[in-house]
Design a protein around this nucleic acid. Structure first.
Length: 107
DNA sequence: GCCTTGACGAACG
DNA sequence: GCGTTCGCCAAGG
């Protein structure tokens, strides 16, 4: 609530269903701040432990686990796998990406 | 006020 | 597919 940005990202993150993942840039864009991918990462890094936000469902644009700051990388993989997310090494299955407003009849 | 770092991304070669 | 470079904005030193 300090800023609209972190509030928007927070809400979006909560809307991410279990078993799916999203990317920093995607969250930033959906939050209304395209190009703020780094801000998302910074925000998550400052998230308190009592935050019920599924930060572990956030991966890079390459669907890889965070490389910078190896602090939570191992935990993230563990949590994702616990949710049924298929991990290909340090990469997440592209089919498990969270798509807001997914149109199965489209494309 | 300037420089470096940071849970990043996209473009190039 | 991989390594490098530039761009992005913000916080910390």
């Amino acid at each position: 609530m300090d800023t609209e940005f972190e509030d928007a990202v927070r809400i979006l993150l909560i809307q991410v269903p279990r078993g799916t993942v999203t990317s920093y840039s995607q969250l930033a864009k959906l939050a209304g701040y395209p190009g703020y991918a780094r801000h998302v990462g910074r925000l998550l890094s400052q998230l308190p432990d009592d935050s019920k936000l599924p930060w572990h469902r956030v991966v890079t644009a390459s669907r890889e686990i965070s490389r910078r700051g190896t602090l939570a990388a191992a935990i993230q993989k563990q949590l994702l796998r616990a949710e049924g997310v298929a991990l290909k090494g340090d990469r997440v299955d592209p089919a498990l990406l969270w798509v807001p407003d997914w149109k199965p009849s489209g494309r």
